[in-house]
Design a protein around this nucleic acid. Sequence first.
DNA 1: TTGATTTATTGGAACGTTCCATTTATAGGC
DNA 2: GCCTATAAATGGAACGTTCCAATAAATCAA
Lengths: 347, 347
Amino acid sequence: MASRPKATILDIAREAGVSKSTVSLVLQGSDLIRPETALKVRKAIEDVGYVYNRGAANLRKAHSNVIGMVINDLTNPFFAEMAVGMERVFQSAGIVPFIANTAENPVRQEEVLKSLMEQGVAGLIVSPARGTTPGAFRRIETAGLPIVFTMRRLPESRIPVIAPDNHRGAWLATAHLIGKRHRRLAFFGGSSDLVVYHERLGGFREACEALGIAKRDTLVVEGETSRKGGIACLETALAMAEPPTAALCFNDAVAFGVMLALRKRGLEPGADFAVVGFDDVIEAQHYMPALTSVAVDSAGLGERAAHVMLKMIQSRTTRAEDHIGAVNLVVRDSCGPDRRAGMGDAA
Amino acid sequence: MASRPKATILDIAREAGVSKSTVSLVLQGSDLIRPETALKVRKAIEDVGYVYNRGAANLRKAHSNVIGMVINDLTNPFFAEMAVGMERVFQSAGIVPFIANTAENPVRQEEVLKSLMEQGVAGLIVSPARGTTPGAFRRIETAGLPIVFTMRRLPESRIPVIAPDNHRGAWLATAHLIGKRHRRLAFFGGSSDLVVYHERLGGFREACEALGIAKRDTLVVEGETSRKGGIACLETALAMAEPPTAALCFNDAVAFGVMLALRKRGLEPGADFAVVGFDDVIEAQHYMPALTSVAVDSAGLGERAAHVMLKMIQSRTTRAEDHIGAVNLVVRDSCGPDRRAGMGDAA
DNA sequence: TTGATTTATTGGAACGTTCCATTTATAGGC
DNA sequence: GCCTATAAATGGAACGTTCCAATAAATCAA
């Protein structure tokens, strides 16, 4: 019961009547060992309740087989799905990734990265926390540790990025709204300290311009990227003199918030006000009404990132191509045509 | 750029013109070192781009400061919240927990546990995967490693458990339904290989019996603990000769599925069929109609589990009290009275 | 000045592995 | 029988820390 001094390969060696080197070789599955000897050793390993000390091994081997995944928000199903996609790939490569959550806190992120590095990880996949300072990854870069970013990029960093085509996604969604006869459009949620925000907002703006929506007929409301943020955005938008009739939301959480706020005001999402989300989390298809959203295949991007990381480790390089994942607009029930525009047409 | 041989305390010592012992002491913040010397050393640390090798340190120190959290399903917001609760506690204790996902796969769980142990974790918090074999944790127990279970318990294990009061929660929810005049009740979702299932179903059964619902008027449908499972459960239930008018669901995901299936059949959840969930995930309050559910405070239980773990590590013990968390029923809009019963009364 | 005491610093062994260079045992060729 | 080739097993140094015991330097009491 009491934790006796834990067994080492020397204990195994004694138990099996061989040398520590032999035990080491058995542990590594070497074929230099006679099968009967290996069997004997394996039995001893069981008997003494041995657990391998990877720390000691890494001291000699230099390269571990653990990879760190640093996620900005695990409670967001979008990032959770991405993490699971990565895990799938690593599992089949015989690697156990350790996940750490930063909760969008750059300080926490710093601690987490430090700890992971001290642990001697072979590589790092990071979805950076909001407000990450540009220098936060310099230590890692100078250490020559393979690292990739997912979903988010940092302003002037040269670290490879695996992310969806935010610009095109926003463009598609905006074009869809315009195609439904909406003429006064809003962009809801997000804040300008995120590169993703600029990408999505940029797509929105360009689509508006290209498809003949005047700048004065567009409204941009920054806000939290959560349901609460969405609720707030809608409130401010509807308080305007000439409120928009449709909104592209920074992400699905914001969109859900907008739909809730509409309902609370007795308005029907889709019929009375069109809303499009971004990310297409699983909940999107289950909401009432089902949410039209830009699908980014988070799990697929996670897998991709994992593959890139594996290749980097294998080829001992610290460079890799960026990958911009395809997106597509999944049209559901949350954006009918602008009613007033419709009526105007018919009349 | 190319990864030069990484710096060690010896490099620092040379750079700063002191001995490695001095560097080691500085690293540990010892007050045996003259402040000016410490400063000099710290500068050298920066200059050579040193990263601490915890593996090497653990070789001597025996006790690491990393804790493993093994979660059965990170994509389930219920478990994600719990994980975040734990993290909060560990963070303020200066500990970085490593999270690993098992995706309800006992084989994967085995790998993950092995890897965590090899890494030399100081303790383990585990939410066991479904179908975990009873012997899966023997290695850990014999190693004398502190371990606690959260949310789920194993049949004959003596490992401490932090879990909600499932029995009472189910009792409360069932009583609520009966109080709403429902007389034919169902229990939807879950499967009997989970202890939690028996606890919740037991609460349901006892409440029925105590409050005068005959066993033949209750229906139990096993199923996946997901939306899909909920949909399937409702289908089979409504295909019965005398279908139930209300259901307690194994968890919220099942409840969401049931509500979706009702809508698909043109029935209104709440008015036409009452549904109660379990866990009270954040989405519950945002659904239409808002879901009545048994709140278990997953984040709180996570925090509790983390505290227990810290205490175990600190007191070098492997035993701890079980903790059964209080639950309470959050009544929202998803269960009106049985219409027929109501009409019968009025007539 | 000398010896005792305190304050800073240091060398060296130890931790549990891996892996190279050896040694020992086994087999084959003649 | 001896020599060589192959197969199997082994000892020892090294990896980067910590920490004890020891030393060196500074301070103090006499």
